[in-house]
């Protein structure tokens, strides 16, 4: 991660943010408690992952078999939730175009604090086969913090299940702190996002 000059990337609240509709307060870091209760919460987070059912690219077709009888992720306590408020796991499935990135940022910011991101497919790692496209991003971790990458084009559902296992391990070790990282390096993330989203017509932080 590069050094951030917070003076330069100052966050401005634009005029079009109606305070009735948007809360424009910036994200805050919520530090971890260093005790057994936090461990218990971590265990519960790891065993009850609710993923946001938002397919950003072609990889979302690999998420559907996971709910079926053959792979059945519900035995790991993973369930799809349709709203970002209730979900705590965001699977960025496949390539992300600039237009989709805008929606991803909005959805990601609406999720509540312990939130985890799985980048599914090579496209989220380095652009994959769309690495020189004019419209798809190359590195997802420059825009939102990513916990686990699942490489492949496309990864099979088994690979995604392995990714879930890795994420669970990470959460139980207390390393799933993407939300706090986002709040800490907010200016850097926001500058990167604004670099490619030219018509920024939403509040800087929309929750």
């Amino acid at each position: 991660m590069t050094e951030v000059n917070n003076e330069e990337n100052k966050i401005i609240k634009p005029d079009y943010c109606d305070p009735e509709l948007f809360c424009t307060a910036l994200p805050k870091e919520v530090p971890r408690m260093n005790n057994i209760i936090q461990k218990f919460y971590d265990w519960a987070q790891a065993n009850s992952l609710w993923l946001l059912a938002f397919g950003t690219g072609c990889g979302s077709i690999e998420m559907r078999p996971l709910y079926t009888a053959r792979y059945d992720i519900s035995r790991y306590g993973i369930a799809p939730r349709p709203t970002p408020r209730q979900s705590n796991l965001f699977i960025i499935s496949g390539y992300v175009s600039v237009k989709t990135l805008k929606r991803i940022i909005r959805s990601y910011e609406q999720m509540q604090n312990p939130k985890f991101v799985i980048g599914l497919g090579s496209c989220t790692i380095n652009g994959g086969m769309y690495w020189d496209s004019y419209n798809t991003i190359n590195r997802l971790d420059h825009y939102i913090p990513v916990d686990v990458y699942v490489a492949g084009c496309m990864p099979r559902p088994e690979a995604l299940i392995a990714g879930f296992d890795e994420l669970k391990k990470r959460i139980k070790e207390g390393r799933g702190e993407g939300a706090n990282e986002y709040a800490k390096n907010f200016a850097w993330y926001k500058a990167n996002q604004k670099k490619i989203i030219k018509d920024w017509d939403m509040p800087d932080y929309n929750w």
Binding site: G127, W131, D132, Y134, N135, T136, N138, R139, H142
Partner: peptide, 20 residues
């Protein structure tokens, strides 16, 4: 417009999208 031949999509991608 990006589909025109004089638009260098690789150069644009390298300048804009943080190539790994």
């Amino acid at each position: 417009p990006p589909m025109r031949k004089d638009f260098d999509t690789k150069k644009y991608s390298e300048e804009t999208y943080f190539p790994r």
